[in-house]
Design a protein around this nucleic acid. Structure first.
Lengths: 221, 221, 221, 221
DNA sequence: AATGAATGAGAATTCATTCAT
DNA sequence: GATGAATGAATTCTCATTCAT
């Protein structure tokens, strides 16, 4: 009963594994699951067609492995961001999170790309679960920020947690999309903003949000 | 110089046109552009393969026609909503807009589906333009609400228009996605909410937003 | 028992006939019989698809009519050339014939094109007969020149008529091909020769023919 | 960067290669490039449709490979003829070349057929180059005969080389065409001539060429 | 373990021809 | 007499997957 990735693949020299992962990532990220071609992946990895089927059960196996690889990657980064800003106040952390997201996308466009591709594609295997995992992931992160902020009295006391989380998640997601998909952003011109302008936009956004999330600048008690 | 849709198609009996549009809409909405099959469309319409090419230039012609059809549909609805709430205050209108969106999606899931599919698919013909048109459309709508609200003093004077529009747009878009794609909504359970609960959620969301957009309940002057 | 062209066509206003002939000539000349598309012809003539079938039996009917039209055209020209040079000697007439051919091709490239296309295409209807008609036509013309030349004592008495006709025909045909198909002419650069150079080449060719490759059996020194 | 023929094809057992080459040659020779059907070729070779695309990039790849195959074949033969007649005089060599051509055509009608098909078909891939290669080939051959003949004093000293080559090339080409396309030959009846009659015709042709149409400028009586 | 040849269903598109109006 | 919608077979090409070596 072979499972997605076969031990054969894991026994491969790391360099070879890397070549295959790289080729697959590139292909899935640029074309999406159903349009990605195993032929292309095989050609770019320099391995034989048959070999791919020694390593993975089938096309969906390759995809799921790559996706999992991508997810783990993101998770690691996010944990870092969370920890490195532990001491700061909620709004600063939110701003830093947005900017960290932008930085990540610019550095790893293919990993973000693979996420974008699966968003609305019915044919992606286990899309439901993959998607939920990612969203849950993001929601957990924001909720944790939120809780700590409330605990410290940086936020309005009556604030409904889930609804606020939803709002933050929507904002974060769309902001990143706007950065990487120009057609998405008809208002802010984020795709060609300089580092500085971007920071300015982020502060403005968070500020607008803030004056609904908290009435003043002083902590509640 | 045939353009996307040929006169032939427009000369067809309406019932036949409708059958073809319906089949195409279904196919594009469920599979997205590149995965949609003209074979399936003709089979479902009960027409011959060759006939489709009498009606449209090619696959992309079929798609663009269907997309245009869908857009016009949405535009009509949106104008209605805007006009039917002219007298009401900004936040009420925002709530009604969200609910109208939800109602539309439930009634025309395929039209919304076709929009979702093109969001991130590089291969969609003229995607850039189509996407921008839709986003511009939505932004214009919200901005117009916003302006009227500000003119009436229902909103905080210092509010940056573009940034706020961006925020509203993100919220609206994600809210609708959450309603139709369960995996998107890890927090609110919108997909199986009753009418009443949905109304409750909407009010909550807008309320959270409100206390950032306006400090108090009284009009500014 | 409908025959190739239907009376319907001949009853058409001349201008309409001309439009159809022109469109068909263009299409057959540029693509050859099997690749020519009735769709294109119909579109370019501005007539309805069904109408073409009121005028001609089928695709081959259209072609045969056009070809016949082309042939009659050529015949008329050739008779003119023959008559207008009646008084001159054989070699002068030969030279003039070559130059007349070049002039014709330049003025009516499509008529020559349609001839070139059918030369070796098995699928052309009645190709055998059409081709033979053209060749016979050319051979007759050259043979008549030859006979008159011999009768006037301008040529060597022992000359075998048929073989010589064959030689002349080969030369004429290839010369015209070389003028219109650059790849055909690796030696003389006929396709971009000036009027003058062309005349020079023609005289040279005829001269070589006239005097032969070797005058006697003994080696030159 | 796959080139026309893939290594896959060359790794095939020779018998299989031969079957495919044979089927393709037959199809291209009988229908010409644009009308040749890959369906037919695979059916006749007894291979799967997909397999052909493992061997060649596309239709034009198949064609170019076959054409190249044919050319090499001809080249080999021609070199043989040239070398085997080194000692003989120009006119004898010319006669032998004509007869060798005829023999070749009768033995390999499809190879000659494929050449005839590309002559005037605009859609043949790289037609310009292929055609020029063949013509250059033939011209080189004849020119080499010519030079050796002149060096040995077998030909008239003043003979213009290029023009004469052109004449010889035209003659050779048309002679072979007449042998294989009956409609081409309205004078000599070459297609059903016996070996002997053919020899006779060849000698006559060469003789006319040798002595020219007229010895002097003065009328004969 | 690795290879790479074989497969055939399915994709988009074109076309000559028919026939009811 | 004119129209133009309808047809379906044929075209080239792609792809995931299998399996003998």
């Amino acid at each position: 009963m072979p499972e997605i990735v076969r031990p054969t693949f894991l026994n491969l020299p790391e360099a070879k594994q890397a070549r295959i992962i790289d080729a697959a990532l590139e292909e899935f990220a640029s074309k999406g699951y159903p349009q990605a071609s195993l032929n292309v992946i095989v050609a770019r990895s320099g391995i034989a067609k048959g070999s791919l089927y020694q390593y993975f059960t089938d096309k969906s196996g390759v995809f799921l492995y790559i996706f999992d690889f991508a997810i783990s990657f993101v998770r690691r980064i996010l944990v870092q961001v969370k920890e490195s800003t532990l001491g700061e106040d909620f709004f600063t952390r939110l701003e830093k999170s947005l900017l960290a997201g932008v930085a990540f996308i610019k550095e790893h466009p293919r990993i973000y790309g693979i996420y974008l591709k699966i968003l609305f594609d019915q044919q992606v295997p286990q899309r439901q679960e993959l998607l939920r995992a990612v969203r849950q992931f993001s929601a957990d992160y924001l909720q944790s920020l939120l809780r700590q902020g409330m605990a410290r009295g940086e936020l309005r006391p009556g604030l409904p947690q889930q609804t606020t989380t939803f709002l933050l998640d929507a904002l974060l997601d769309r902001f990143l999309q706007a950065v990487s998909v120009p057609a998405f952003d008809v208002a802010l011109g984020l795709d060609q903003a300089t580092e500085e302008e971007l920071g300015q936009r982020v502060r403005e956004l968070v500020s607008v949000l803030r004056h609904g999330l908290a009435d003043g600048d002083k902590p509640y008690e």
